[in-house]
């Protein structure tokens, strides 16, 4: 069922925030195979969200060492939009409001800009969005709602998930997609992403504080991050034990 071996490979990745000498990422190694879920857990300030932004190329961060590639293509050499076109998706922890820019228009532009895909008309994208939105039990008004404007925290996270279903990336980095979601919404979001791993072999890098997400979206590998490094790795049991013991052992 998978459409080939899209793999995210991160090796020895180091990065700092512009204007500061301190490294937030201090040599991170991660692999995400197609169709699998890899979780990164860890305390606040461990560098988890920074990893997501550095992979996506957010302005304000400088890579100071290491490599990152998707399907063999060097991510770090590309501007942000090219990373997205190469198959990387970031579900933002805090999706930005863009007044006056409807979701379907933004995604139609994004898809039309991809080399080799050809122009995707806005009605075609709207239809795909409508189907995705209906399958997640959301209101049809989200199809052309201005990006994230006046949405609740939970609506924003569902709105991010809907975009995964339409853009069909190879790798989705989920930056705390479980924050702001109630249990029912979390189940819907996680089920859609789990389905995507089977449907087109989506690889998932799930950044989270809590095991709760992983009960709905089972991970094959769990990494613990602290002080900008992976300090422990294991299977689903590791997430369970963290739920009980917390992160004290890694601080």
């Amino acid at each position: 069922m998978t459409l080939g071996g899209a793999v995210l490979q991160v090796a020895g990745l180091r990065a700092r925030v512009d204007g500061s000498d301190a490294e937030i990422l201090r040599g991170v190694d991660i692999e995400v195979p197609a169709g699998q879920v890899v979780a990164i857990m860890g305390p606040n300030g461990s560098g988890k969200s920074t990893l997501g932004h550095v992979l996506m190329g957010r302005p304000g961060y400088t890579v100071t060492g290491g490599t990152a590639s998707i399907n063999g293509e060097d991510l770090l050499a590309m501007p942000t939009y090219r990373r997205a076109q190469a198959g990387l998706f970031l579900a933002h922890q805090y999706p930005i409001e863009v007044p006056g820019v409807p979701l379907d228009r933004a995604l139609a532009r994004a898809m039309s800009a991809r080399a080799g895909v050809g122009v995707r008309s806005r009605p075609a994208v709207a239809a795909a969005l409508a189907a995705e939105i209906a399958s997640m039990g959301m209101d049809p008004r989200f199809v052309d709602w201005p990006l994230n404007v006046d949405l609740s925290g939970g609506e924003k996270k569902r709105n991010e998930t809907v975009q995964i279903g339409v853009l069909k990336p190879r790798i989705a980095v989920l930056d705390e997609i479980d924050s702001g979601l109630d249990v029912d919404a979390l189940a819907v979001v996680a089920a859609r992403i789990a389905e995507a791993t089977r449907e087109w072999g989506l690889g998932v890098l799930a950044i989270t504080h809590y095991n709760r997400l992983l009960t709905y979206l089972p991970a094959t590998t769990v990494h613990v991050m602290a002080h900008g490094q992976i300090v422990d790795s294991g299977g689903p049991d590791l997430a369970l034990s963290l739920e009980e013991s917390g992160y004290q052992g890694y601080e």
Binding site: M56, R58, P59, P79, T80, Y81, A84, Q85, F89, L90, H92, P95, I96, E97, V98, V101, A106, L107, R109, A110, M111, A113, R114, L147, Q163, L167
Partner: peptide, 12 residues
């Protein structure tokens, strides 16, 4: 705002 759109694949 620009970063959010670029993260979806929209050129700058």
């Amino acid at each position: 705002q620009r970063y959010y759109l670029e993260s979806r694949g929209v050129p700058p």
